[in-house]
Measured scan of single mutants.
Amino acid sequence: MAAGGDHGSPDSYRSPLASRYASPEMCFVFSDRYKFRTWRQLWLWLAEAEQTLGLPITDEQIQEMKSNLENIDFKMAAEEEKRLRHDVMAHVHTFGHCCPKAAGIIHLGATSCYVGDNTDLIILRNALDLLLPKLARVISRLADFAKERASLPTLGFTHFQPAQLTTVGKRCCLWIQDLCMDLQNLKRVRDDLRFRGVKGTTGTQASFLQLFEGDDHKVEQLDKMVTEKAGFKRAFIITGQTYTRKVDIEVLSVLASLGASVHKICTDIRLLANLKEMEEPFEKQQIGSSAMPYKRNPMRSERCCSLARHLMTLVMDPLQTASVQWFERTLDDSANRRICLAEAFLTADTILNTLQNISEGLVVYPKVIERRIRQELPFMATENIIMAMVKAGGSRQDCHEKIRVLSQQAASVVKQEGGDNDLIERIQVDAYFSPIHSQLDHLLDPSSFTGRASQQVQRFLEEEVYPLLKPYESVMKVKAELCL
């Protein structure tokens, strides 16, 4: 049975990233139509530049190519590739079939990587351009969430054990800070992308030097003109047959890092959902379990974690691919890159769409948070109580021993009897502590235990987050809708 299948058929496997999760716009960027249309555009740009620099290419040939950029006979191309065992030459023939007058000058002087690699770089750039505003929107939604809850005390956790208090907004800023680093890295790697350009079979530009009869300047002009037509500021000066596969490492490393950030955020949300302090959106008709109707599973956060793990592992592909590119190139890269580049971007696209949807509907339960604080705060307040007693004339050592005994009794009630923490009640009825009984409410005010959390939130948002989001103001209103 021949390899390949009808990918629109229910009898043929289709990647869930495309069929179930990723956005239509990201799927289109990695589609065959987008790819092969870009090949034709690159052939047109090459012909236009070659004509401008004096090669015998007519206006009629150029116009014929322009008129057929979208006229792609995919069936013919597939048949040609089956016959020739070469995808680029299959599309040269297919393009030439609908451009008979231009057929002889299509791909003039070029090698397969002229269309293959340059198209990949265009796709990487455009895919990054799709991700950047999506990530900015996630940051914006979380920034709104953090600002609104900047002063809401909550129990902090280290080692997932109760620690000092923080605020809900401050905790959210930990998430935002990681995503801001990801946004900066995505922008950097996007701006650092260079075009492969017009380089020939081993990167020496020998074929173009021959076409222009040894004119170095025209060869350099050709490279520059096509690079500018493709919208790049610069091209690699040095290439082998391909652009260095280190570029793929750079791009997928940034995406993998984004995956790590999203995994951490969504894990926190899942843990908070278990504590009943916070939940992701839950639709009115949504079913959490087929057997347990009360369940409210954090399905979206779980999906993000599941896909983020996949995204983090994909960076190993370009690392290994770059390491086995012998001399000017081997074909070890080809099949692998067809999979890992598309999957990385479709996965990143999915987790950003999902995280935006989550961040637009996060639900906080202040009463649950308050109750958990009441359970733990008495123990945390013991040092403040000791200091207040010393100020009232008591002995630190005597007070410490009193607190120690009462704390152990209260802990026994919590752990052995399943009761509430009654340390404060014990202190309130103990005559030894009568000098500070009137101060206990103040000493137990949760806001006095959150330090500068709310001020940190305000400063972080104003100095770091809002300036970073400013270039994306025009796209901030787009909502994230999930079908599944």
Rank of each mutant, 00 (worst) to 15 (best):
G361D: 08
L130A: 15
L319M: 11
N68S: 06
L484G: 15
N353P: 07
E343I: 02
K101S: 07
H400F: 04
K284C: 05
V413F: 11
L443R: 05
S448F: 05
R309F: 10
F449V: 05
T158L: 00
K479S: 14
W175R: 02
K233Y: 04
H93V: 13
Y34I: 11
K391P: 11
D73L: 03
A410Q: 02
G214M: 04
K35A: 07
M389G: 11
S438V: 14
G203M: 00
Q205Y: 01
R33Y: 09
E417G: 12
E370G: 09
L53S: 09
E48C: 06
D117C: 12
F74V: 13
N336Y: 03
A110L: 03
Q408F: 12
W326G: 04
L331R: 05
V405S: 07
A388R: 02
M389A: 07
R372E: 07
D144M: 09
Q455P: 10
A18W: 15
Y34V: 02
Q456V: 10
R374G: 09
H310I: 07
R404C: 10
R452K: 07
G8K: 11
R85P: 00
K295S: 03
A410V: 05
G259D: 00
A150E: 04
T227C: 12
K134Q: 14
V413W: 10
R372L: 04
V465G: 09
R196A: 05
E473K: 15
D349P: 01
P56G: 05
N297Y: 05
L311S: 02
S334H: 14
R125E: 08
E376H: 14
D268H: 13
I373C: 11
G116F: 07
H400W: 02
D420H: 15
C180I: 14
Q409L: 11
I385Y: 12
D317L: 06
L255A: 07
N353E: 10
I287F: 02
G104H: 12
K415E: 12
V247S: 11
R452L: 09
S67L: 06
L406I: 12
G419K: 15
P435K: 05
Y294R: 01
C180D: 01
L152C: 05
R452V: 13
F208G: 07
Y13I: 13
K284M: 08
T38L: 07
Q51T: 08
A388M: 04
E464A: 11
F433C: 05
S67G: 06
G54F: 10
I123E: 07
R234W: 08
I176W: 02
Q41C: 13
S151C: 03
V247L: 14
E360C: 03
D441H: 15
S301Y: 01
H91P: 01
M476K: 14
K35E: 09
H97G: 05
T354W: 06
A480W: 09
L352Y: 05
T313K: 03
Q41W: 13
L469A: 13
Y466S: 08
L53W: 03
V29W: 14
R296D: 07
N185T: 13
R194N: 02
L108E: 03
H7P: 14
W326N: 08
M387Q: 05
S67P: 04
E250D: 11
R296C: 14
H437W: 13
D120G: 04
V429D: 07
E148R: 04
L69F: 07
A77R: 02
L193P: 03
N353I: 11
I106Y: 04
A453I: 15
K147G: 11
F212T: 10
K284I: 15
C173T: 05
I265H: 12
V324I: 09
N68G: 06
N421L: 10
D317S: 07
I339V: 08
E60K: 14
H400P: 00
L341F: 09
E213T: 13
M181F: 15
H310Y: 05
R309Y: 01
L179E: 01
L128D: 08
P100Q: 06
V247Q: 09
D120N: 13
I385L: 13
D398A: 12
A102F: 03
W39P: 00
V475M: 14
K218G: 12
K66M: 09
F449T: 05
I358Y: 08
R20P: 03
R137S: 11
H93F: 08
Q416A: 09
A291N: 03
Q456D: 03
K367Q: 12
Q416N: 08
G4L: 13
N274V: 12
Q428M: 08
G116H: 06
G54C: 05
L258F: 08
V92F: 00
F74K: 10
L121N: 12
G288D: 01
Q221C: 11
G104N: 12
E417Y: 13
N336T: 12
R396I: 04
Q408V: 03
E277V: 04
P318D: 01
